[in-house]
Computed example of a mutant assay.
Amino acid sequence: MTADLFDDQLIEAAQLAISPGAVLLRGFAREGDAALLHAFDDVTAQAPLRHLVTPGGYTMSVAMSNCGPLGWVSDRRGYRYAPQDPLSCHPWPAMPACWLDLATRAAAQAGFADFRPDACLVNLYAPGSKLSLHQDKDEAGFAAPIVSVSLGLPAVFLFGTPRRSDRPQRLRLSHGDVVVWGGPARLAYHGVAPLADGEHALLGRRRINLTFRQAG
């Protein structure tokens, strides 16, 4: 067996097709995770994590922030993207270079070249936090994929189809896993089951999720 063939088989084993247009990249973000986590501290120091309120008045269990030219926000007026942090009235922090590099490389690995995210939603999960099934549809268009990075405690990711009535797959995501979905899967319903308690070597009782989007 040649070295090139062996490398190709390793890549294939680490890359799992979830559905047409959706790919799970096992451990893709594990290398360089120290830099990713340092950038998380920098971003959240500038734009602190907060629990957003939905238009229906429900307070989300996941703490959120943003970076990049646009940030996703929610309140009683609705869901939308905004160029400024509503808490500080300042622009969102710049997207860290190591985050942008990771997102574009993951998208390309999944078959989506020229991904240029202008928004990164930063989510912090504590044990018991969850995210209900939803579609990412507040963006200006749906041609670009979504890139979702998991760090810290493992989580059960629920990934369905564009029809809410279809039963979603349950995928265990570990530290460094990246999910990319676009094309026919771009409007798939997805969510996160309540986070199980545990202790991660780097993040303790926490899970961080970075979701990159081309929103504008």
Rank of each mutant, 00 (worst) to 15 (best):
M1R: 04
M1H: 07
A3H: 13
D4N: 04
L5R: 15
A13M: 13
A14V: 00
A17N: 08
I18Y: 08
S19T: 09
G21R: 05
V23W: 06
V23G: 00
R26H: 09
G27C: 02
A29F: 09
A29V: 09
R30I: 00
L36P: 14
A39D: 14
F40S: 01
A47G: 06
P48Q: 09
P48I: 04
P48Y: 12
L49F: 12
L49Q: 07
L52C: 10
G57W: 14
T59M: 13
V62R: 09
A63L: 05
P69L: 04
W72E: 03
D75Q: 04
D75L: 04
R77P: 08
Y79I: 07
Y81S: 01
A82M: 13
A82E: 15
Q84Y: 10
D85Q: 04
D85F: 06
P86Q: 09
P86K: 12
L87V: 11
H90F: 08
P91Q: 07
W92N: 10
P93A: 01
M95H: 11
P96G: 02
L102M: 11
L102K: 12
A107W: 08
A110G: 12
G111K: 08
A113N: 14
P117Q: 11
A119G: 11
L121G: 10
V122M: 07
V122C: 05
L124P: 11
G128H: 09
K130L: 06
S132T: 13
D136N: 13
K137Y: 09
K137T: 04
G141A: 15
P145A: 05
P145I: 09
I146S: 07
V147H: 09
V147M: 07
S150A: 11
S150I: 02
G152V: 01
F157V: 09
G160Q: 12
T161V: 05
R164H: 13
S165R: 15
S165I: 10
S165N: 06
P168E: 00
Q169K: 08
Q169V: 02
R170I: 00
L171N: 11
L171E: 10
L173H: 11
L173Y: 07
G176N: 08
D177H: 13
V178R: 06
V179S: 02
V180Q: 01
W181C: 03
G183P: 06
Y189A: 01
G191F: 08
V192N: 03
A193H: 11
P194F: 03
P194Y: 04
L195T: 10
A196W: 00
G198S: 03
H200L: 00
H200R: 07
A201S: 10
L203H: 10
G204P: 04
R205G: 05
R206W: 00
N209C: 00
G216F: 10
